[in-house]
């Protein structure tokens, strides 16, 4: 398998703050990577760089076999992002939101594809309702629909469980399991150890802008063993 994400010595400096100190990361296509780390470790910044939202200060990044440079705009077609913000417009309906994003991503057979993804996340009943009245869980589901609308090869999730109720968590879990079955590459940040471990093929721990640990899910053992490993790597603090 060739790597779909190949990052070498990524750094990010904002003003006087060095957020990332040279991150190396290689991820094969179809793998599910979960990123753990304390607050302020640079997880979100790393995902922003990998999802081509922001440029690194230095280092090189290869996405889907292409070195990221001036072609960043085109490469973004390969990428979907789900964050704890929904990126959805309250005054537009679910369908209109997806119509808008579908046009931005040049999705073919858009109307049909919208029906598909809305059914996939169980929102087909709310096709023409304005997003403003959606609950947090519905919003997150629509956000998933938005992120997979253009069939991205890589999906990034930044703490997707924040603020979700039990039912919404179950739906998110089943959608994530479905993504895994579709052989999509997924990179997820989470603070929830059990959920994070349950889905992942690989685990990455980041601390103070550096990779503290990167290994296969099988290497880290049980939940308790992973918690010990995590404490050891980040110095006892969570």
């Amino acid at each position: 398998m060739i790597a779909i994400i190949e990052a070498k010595q990524l750094t990010k400096r904002v003003g006087a703050k060095q957020i990332l100190h040279g991150i190396d990361l290689s991820l094969e296509s179809g793998r599910f990577l979960t990123i753990f780390g304390p607050n302020g470790a640079g997880k979100t910044t790393l995902i922003k760089i990998l999802s081509l939202l922001t440029a690194p200060s230095s280092g090189s990044l290869v996405i889907a076999g292409q070195e990221v440079g001036d072609n960043a705009a085109d490469l973004r077609k390969q990428i979907g992002v789900i964050s704890h913000h929904s990126y959805l417009y309250g005054n537009l309906t679910a369908r209109e939101n997806l119509l808008f994003y579908g046009r931005m991503y040049e999705v073919p057979n858009l109307e049909q594809r919208i029906e598909e993804v809305l059914t996939e996340v169980g929102l087909e009943m709310f096709f023409n309702d304005p997003v403003r009245i959606f609950s947090r869980g519905m919003l997150q589901r629509l956000s998933i629909a938005r992120a997979i609308l253009h069939n991205p090869r890589i999906l990034f999730l930044d703490e997707p469980y924040t603020g979700l109720d039990l039912q919404a968590i179950e739906i998110l879990n089943s959608v994530l399991a479905g993504l895994k079955d579709q052989q999509r590459t997924v990179v997820m940040i989470t603070h929830t150890f059990d959920v994070g471990l349950a889905l992942s093929d690989e685990v990455l721990i980041i601390n103070k802008g550096r990779v503290a640990f990167h290994g296969a899910r099988s290497e880290v053992g049980s939940l308790a063993e992973f918690q010990d490993l995590y404490r050891e790597k980040v110095g006892g603090k969570q």
Binding site: L53, A73, L75, R76, H85, Y89, G90, Y101, M104
Partner: peptide, 15 residues
């Protein structure tokens, strides 16, 4: 900025 839509726009594959 509501729902951080600006990030959604910035992620779109267009200049």
């Amino acid at each position: 900025q509501i729902n951080d839509c600006i990030s959604g726009l910035m992620l779109a594959p267009v200049d």
